[in-house]
């Protein structure tokens, strides 16, 4: 389990991270969203023990990033937002090097290497030189490197940048698989659609502050106290609007030109059923009724102002 406790990082002129706290359980895939300069990389590097926090700390299974960095490092795989590949090295040698510095016993290394290559679909490139791989393959190799020691926590800083849609889809599949394997995965990105469909937890960071964090649907709920309902009645949309506006839980109701009703509704599911009933009782004939699905994009746009440090 990962607990991040009030992490703070100050640089000469600015505070890059201002007291970020969250906690994650095995199997959680945490989408860490923020625009450029929001403080994602800084937070991740602190958790990866590469940067000393000005105050606050984080604990991974009880090991503290400040007091016991070596124990933390054994449990994490960190994939930075750049490659950091060595020249003149073959794929398996690259992985062998990292397996060695992660203290994987020499006898198990070749098996471990085969496994991670299999997982990242790079088996055919085992003997290729690292610099001969395509960008997507290099990205996957970097991920494979993070996996050689079977870490509990994966810190992936913008793993999908520069990938084509197909590679992106494959990466998502891979990350979802890692979640199913019981790992904690932190994936940062500034591209929302990239994260929304496979993360089960999200955190939205702006100017070093975590504006919201929690399971995706809860966040959406919490930040959108009202839901938008879309309905269609057979005729007399204007009359329907009039009726709806008298209902207590309806904040506003409007009809579009083609007769569709948009209702800003503050009630729960029960109230939603009541609303349909009221329409029917009022003699209107609803032929379509659905809840407009607010997504992370809405949440993000609503929460953030686009300000940068």
């Amino acid at each position: 389990m990962l607990e991040v406790l009030n992490l703070r990082k100050e640089y000469a002129g600015l505070t890059a991270v201002k007291g970020v706290s969250f906690s994650l359980q095995p199997g959680d895939i945490f989408g860490f969203i923020g625009s450029n300069g929001a403080g994602k990389t800084t937070t991740i590097r602190m958790i990866a023990t590469l940067l000393e926090p000005t105050s606050g700390t984080a604990r991974l299974n009880g090991a503290d990033i400040v007091n016991d960095p070596m124990a933390v490092r054994r449990m994490i795989g960190y994939m930075p937002d750049f490659f950091g590949l060595y020249d003149d090295v073959k794929v398996w040698e690259y992985l062998d090097f990292f397996a060695a510095i992660y203290q994987v016993p020499a006898k198990q290394r070749s098996e471990v290497i085969d496994n991670v290559l299999e997982l990242t679909d790079l088996t055919v490139k085992k003997n290729a030189f690292v610099q001969s791989l395509s960008r997507g393959m290099q990205q996957r190799l970097c991920l494979a490197r993070c996996l050689v020691h079977d870490p509990l926590l994966l810190l992936l800083d913008e793993p999908a940048s520069g990938l084509d849609p197909r590679a992106r889809a494959e990466l998502k599949e891979l990350i979802a698989e890692l979640g199913r394997m019981g790992k904690i995965v932190i994936v940062s990105s500034h591209i929302l659609p990239e994260l929304s469909d496979f993360c089960n937890t999200v955190g939205i960071i702006e100017k070093g502050e975590l504006l919201a964090y929690g399971p995706v649907n809860e966040i959406v709920r919490a930040t959108q106290p009202t839901r938008i309902l879309e309905a269609h009645v057979l005729k007399d949309a204007a009359g329907a609007v009039e009726l709806l506006q008298r209902l207590p839980q309806v904040v506003t109701a409007q009809a579009t030109r083609d007769g569709e009703l948009r209702i800003d509704f503050a009630g729960d599911n029960e109230g939603q059923a009541e609303l349909v009933k009221a329409l029917v009782d009022g003699g209107f004939k609803p032929i379509g009724f659905r809840e407009h699905q607010a997504d992370l994009e809405d949440v993000f746009l609503k929460l953030t102002t686009g300000a940068v440090n």
Partner: peptide, 16 residues
């Protein structure tokens, strides 16, 4: 090459 970060996110001491 920025590979120092990779090395030091592993349990590697500067001495090693």
């Amino acid at each position: 090459r920025r590979s120092l970060d990779l090395v030091f996110s592993a349990p590697v001491s500067p001495k090693y």
